[in-house]
Measured scan of single mutants.
Amino acid sequence: MATGGRRGAAAAPLLVAVAALLLGAAGHLYPGEVCPGMDIRNNLTRLHELENCSVIEGHLQILLMFKTRPEDFRDLSFPKLIMITDYLLLFRVYGLESLKDLFPNLTVIRGSRLFFNYALVIFEMVHLKELGLYNLMNITRGSVRIEKNNELCYLATIDWSRILDSVEDNYIVLNKDDNEECGDICPGTAKGKTNCPATVINGQFVERCWTHSHCQKVCPTICKSHGCTAEGLCCHSECLGNCSQPDDPTKCVACRNFYLDGRCVETCPPPYYHFQDWRCVNFSFCQDLHHKCKNSRRQGCHQYVIHNNKCIPECPSGYTMNSSNLLCTPCLGPCPKVCHLLEGEKTIDSVTSAQELRGCTVINGSLIINIRGGNNLAAELEANLGLIEEISGYLKIRRSYALVSLSFFRKLRLIRGETLEIGNYSFYALDNQNLRQLWDWSKHNLTITQGKLFFHYNPKLCLSEIHKMEEVSGTKGRQERNDIALKTNGDQASCENELLKFSYIRTSFDKI
């Protein structure tokens, strides 16, 4: 039985969820670079991206490699990797027998973001014989899940209580170790020597080791999670996991709180800001991140802002960003909400898709409305799209047979046209069989910064309504002859009103 693990408890099935942008060198404390989270699957090609990484700022997932063999891993080693800020997950990587050479110096898994409450997941690794993470000293947050690894031993010899604050939620089941077939031998045991430290858990006094050649490092209890030197002297209180010299914040392997210019500090002093819960960055760093993602459509890219001495992905609820200094300031009234469309555009074809934009005031991208039916549609669209004030790209209304009016965009005031449909149009209306009105132009103002209007096959939309939009939106004169079809717009509506004058002759039985 794995020490510190839980057996036999019912657990939810383990679901495996399925960018080499360097964020800056980590400095003297770390020998390499800070790398983003990685999802490495199918083959070993991307694994080489770990070569210079000291910190993975995010998670590391290595999974679904069915053609790899043990010899493929023999020359692979990433000794610079010290810390993973989120979680480490391995799933069905064939041929991998140990992690001792792959990650010989991995010391800390912070667990800032977890995989279903777990910071370390080893699942269905069919050839893994031992973990071998002999320098792993601290899992700051989260638990361990090690399950269905039929060859995995050296679990009962690990004292997880020396690595985690609590072992109650560890789930370590259905491994070879369960069948008591392992016969784990710690260093020196074969020669009758006791080389590794022994600890007591559940009444068992057991030597602690990761492999037959690597003991588990056990520091004096007084050192807590700070770690200790090879001689057993406690590291500085700002260290986490390990250090090369005692009581020196510049000799830590990793930091308990924050890293700044080669030393570990309790908090980031001005003019620095907390970033990702582990390091200090200056304003320029946060500003660069903001600008890199301002026009990016890459998933996970955030326009970072500053709030409460932190550089964070977005302002919290009730705050909006001051564009001059990136500071989050309290909103006066309802907060603006910028919604970034991942692929640059979004099609609204149902109430469900409209709900995804609920509360958005600025759309960074283009909207395509293609709704053919739905219950209580006008009210639903207004509830979900009615706060949109600005669209950076274009607005396209296409084959939306259920629409009679666009009044559900009740606050839309600006279409920038930074991206144009077919390279020309910022407003595009095609084949809307029941569209009769755009907006009530006596109450609604709309500016279209650039781009043209396109109207074709809107049989109940009168040309007068379209011409009014040209005047109000500032697009009059931009359109070419064929942009607004004269014969297919309003051709099934009563669009022309003329005053009919009647004269009559009164007659009676005795007068003409």
Rank of each mutant, 00 (worst) to 15 (best):
L64T: 07
C331S: 02
H307K: 08
T68A: 03
R208E: 12
T189V: 14
I185D: 03
V265I: 13
I139S: 00
N175A: 04
N179Y: 09
S112R: 13
G188T: 05
C328S: 00
I56R: 15
K176M: 05
I62M: 10
D75F: 13
C315H: 09
K100P: 02
D86K: 14
Q61S: 10
G318E: 06
K129C: 15
Y94A: 11
W160S: 00
F258D: 04
G95H: 10
W210C: 01
C243K: 00
I139E: 00
C209L: 00
P246I: 04
R263I: 11
C153H: 01
G241C: 04
Y273F: 11
N257M: 03
D169G: 11
N135T: 11
D165G: 07
T199C: 03
N179F: 08
P187Q: 05
C182V: 01
C35S: 00
I40F: 15
Y134F: 04
C286Q: 00
C219H: 01
S161G: 07
L326C: 03
K176D: 03
L327W: 14
S77E: 06
E130S: 10
L102A: 05
F283Y: 06
N309H: 15
Y87S: 01
L155C: 05
G132S: 05
H226Y: 10
R256E: 08
H48A: 06
K193N: 07
L128G: 01
P270E: 10
N150W: 11
G183L: 12
I82H: 12
L326P: 05
C331K: 03
I56N: 00
F78K: 02
D288H: 03
M38W: 03
L120G: 00
S77Y: 12
D184P: 02
P330S: 13
Y154H: 05
I109F: 02
W210M: 02
I201Q: 03
R110E: 10
R256P: 03
R263K: 09
P197L: 03
S112Y: 12
C268P: 00
L240M: 06
N282T: 09
D288G: 14
D75N: 14
E57P: 00
C219L: 01
Y30V: 06
Y94P: 13
Y87L: 01
C215N: 01
G111N: 01
S324W: 08
N105R: 04
E147F: 09
C228I: 02
F285V: 07
H59C: 14
Y134M: 10
F283L: 09
G192M: 07
K224E: 10
G333N: 11
Y171I: 13
I146S: 02
I163F: 11
D277N: 11
M125V: 04
N105Q: 09
N295Y: 12
E238D: 12
V34R: 10
G95M: 04
N150Q: 08
S244Q: 13
N42W: 10
C243F: 01
Q287I: 11
P197M: 12
K310I: 09
C335P: 04
I139Q: 00
S324N: 08
R46A: 15
L120Y: 02
V144C: 10
P249G: 14
F91P: 00
P334G: 08
L88T: 00
Y154R: 04
N179H: 10
V144P: 03
N242Y: 10
Q245T: 06
I82L: 12
L120D: 00
L90G: 00
L90T: 13
N150F: 04
H59V: 14
D277E: 12
D184V: 05
L120T: 03
A198V: 04
S323R: 06
C293L: 11
L102R: 01
I158P: 01
H302R: 08
S166G: 04
L128T: 03
L99G: 03
T85E: 03
G111E: 00
C311V: 08
R256K: 09
W278V: 04
H302T: 12
